[in-house]
């Protein structure tokens, strides 16, 4: 009966067992609690919330536009105040309005009032006192002249 050769384990057998055991006993690296939610967020992205009356402009653009409107408004207000405070500004237009003949613009005159016949037939009216006659009247009513120095 021939003896079978004795087979021994390789030198590094123990280390090999140690390594494979250690690999199988490695602690499991578990994902965080938010893992599922994170995956679902990636797969089903949340729908954007509709906002009221989107203007399509960025907040910066809107801010600049509103600032420009405010500046123009303030400018108009200040110029209006300055215009009303100017004593010449308001008086310059008044004479132009007064130079317009009243009888040409007056709506009370009939259309044919300016015809020669109509003027002749019109009742005589006392003419308005001229500047000269008013001065004479004033002189007469002024009383005695006081002469001083004599």
């Amino acid at each position: 009966m021939s003896e079978l050769p004795r087979i021994s384990a390789p030198d590094d057998f123990e280390v090999a067992v140690f390594v494979r055991t250690a690999l199988s006993k490695l602690p499991e690296a578990l994902p965080p609690d938010t893992f599922e939610q994170d995956v679902l967020t990636k797969v089903y992205p949340p729908q954007p919330v509709p906002q009221a009356a989107p203007s399509g402009r960025s907040p910066w653009t809107r801010a600049i536009l509103w600032s420009a409107v405010a500046i123009v408004g303030i400018g108009l207000t200040l110029s209006g105040i300055a215009w009303n405070m100017n004593p010449f500004g308001s008086d310059q237009e008044t004479p132009a309005e007064e130079t317009t003949p009243a009888r040409l613009t007056s709506p009370t005159l009939p259309p044919d009032a300016l015809k020669p016949d109509t003027i002749a037939a019109a009742p005589a009216t006392k003419p308005a006192p001229t500047t000269k006659s008013v001065a004479k009247k004033k002189r007469r009513n002024n009383g005695p002249k006081v002469v001083t120095g004599y």
């Binding site: 994902p31 893992f35 599922e36 995956v39 679902l40």
Partner: peptide
């Protein structure tokens, strides 16, 4: 959607590991 969640729950640990 629930079926997909079930897949994630079933395999998230071994895949991450």
């Amino acid at each position: 959607e629930a079926a997909f969640v079930a897949i994630v729950r079933r395999y998230k640990d071994p895949i991450t590991n």
